[in-house]
Design a protein around this nucleic acid. Structure first.
Lengths: 245, 245
DNA sequence: GACCTTCTGTACGGTAACACACAATTAGAT
DNA sequence: ATCTAATTGTGTGTTACCGTACAGAAGGTC
């Protein structure tokens, strides 16, 4: 692939966008554009992946599924990162499911190409490792947040994380879906959402939540959100969070 | 360092022990033996580390400390791994505190030496990356377990995790310390421990818990324990868990 | 327009873990 | 032997979330 439009699009993914020109152009030749549909399972626990993915407007959830069917999200990948770190980390597979949480676009790269690029040991490798460390920070914070914070706080965090990775203020998401991500009951999400609606931070109507007061949402969220954001910023040179005008 | 005794000791750390002879001997010249005392803080959130550590009989907890002072463990490193992945991952620091949970021995290596070894890109690098992926699995499972399982189940998991990394059946640990690791109240640990004592899985006296029926403890634990163990086994060629006679 | 499905709101009883308070026990120090 | 500090046990009331059940509302389909 190599149209100028694709080039522009690829840069929307921060990892690709931070590559120096020469490296970016080499990598670009190995990328194929791709559309992610809501609910698509990019890989199942234990699956070998044929591709790695660089979302630009799509968001992918890393979900863990328990034996009894309950689920919990451990992390999220959007235009900030790459799906498929297990390929260059050497394990080939992981124990979680990757599912499209918000439809959108992105690029894919063959597993073989990814490994070759990584083995070169250049700036791309360094970047991928730093990204992996940022992802570890996100997963760690999820662990802590799961232990110590309320559903309402976690819903705030989840909304902000999604908002950061989207162009729009509208999150197309049912309470049921969010409850699977947060690992809580659907009713729990409804209740928490109502509280946020009452404070006029969001609106929530059948299948869509809209963020109407992001600043106040940031005031309501637990520290976990900011900690992860700062860490992404430190490790990758820029935060994921939207900035204000 | 290079005495024959040290060589034997170094092999007690699985990462070091899985190196091929030539690589092991090269690495060995860069190791210094070290003793870890209970409660020692190996690094604080945000600190740059001068060394990485390879425990052999000590256990280190990766603890996250919230703004309000409450704490939660995100992972644990013993003879199965290395403390200080952030050095070769490129971030230099992390957002958690590393504290000695169980006193014991191990080795340290200068940060500079670690980076040089990693940059060589050989088997050691591959091993370190696979270990990092195993640690990610552990942290992820902690996140899920924090969300979905009871304190009693988590105490079982924590006891087994510690037992796996120790020679003894005695865990020198107060309820208060464990409560900080699990991110729950001290009373909660006391209650959970009482239930396990009633089932004759452990004994618990002032400052020491002793595992007396490991098999039953494994039956009582949630799936999280086994999942992580299987993943360590797959990624590193051997599990951490003790095997039975 | 009638029907069906999906999504959301509400209610009720149950439970696990919380916060706080304080008593009882044990270990170590002088 | 006594004192002190650390550790563990226990009780009481509160809260957040769970499981279950069901009603109402919104949207798609025929």
């Amino acid at each position: 692939m190599s149209t100028a439009a694709d080039q522009q699009d690829a840069k929307k993914n921060y990892l690709l966008g931070s590559l120096a020109t020469a490296e970016f152009e080499r990598v670009l030749t190995k990328l194929q554009p791709l559309s992610f549909a809501l609910g698509d399972v990019m890989h199942e626990s234990g699956d070998k992946m044929d591709y790695v993915y660089f979302p630009t407007t799509a968001i992918i959830s890393l979900l863990y599924i328990m034996e009894n069917g309950s689920t919990a999200e451990i992390g999220v990948v959007g235009n900030d990162g790459i799906l498929g770190i297990e390929l260059f980390m050497g394990g080939e597979t992981t124990t979680n499911r990757a599912i499209v949480q918000s439809a959108g676009l992105g690029f894919k790269m063959k597993a073989r190409d990814m490994k070759d690029e990584f083995t070169l040991g250049g700036a791309f490798q360094k970047l991928l490792l730093r990204y992996t460390q940022a992802l570890i920070a996100q997963i760690s914070q999820t662990a802590v947040c799961n232990r110590l914070h309320s559903v309402e706080q976690q819903l705030c965090r989840w909304l902000l994380l999604s908002h950061d990775r989207l162009d729009s203020d509208k999150l197309v998401m049912t309470h049921d879906l969010i409850s699977n991500m947060l690992g809580v009951r659907r009713e729990g999400v409804t209740l928490a959402a109502q509280k946020l609606v009452a404070q006029k931070l969001i609106t929530s109507v059948r299948g869509t939540m809209t963020i109407i007061d992001r600043q106040s949402l940031e005031n309501a969220v637990c520290e976990c959100y900011e900690v992860v954001n700062t860490e992404y910023n430190r490790l990758l040179g820029r935060g994921v969070a939207r900035t204000f005008a």
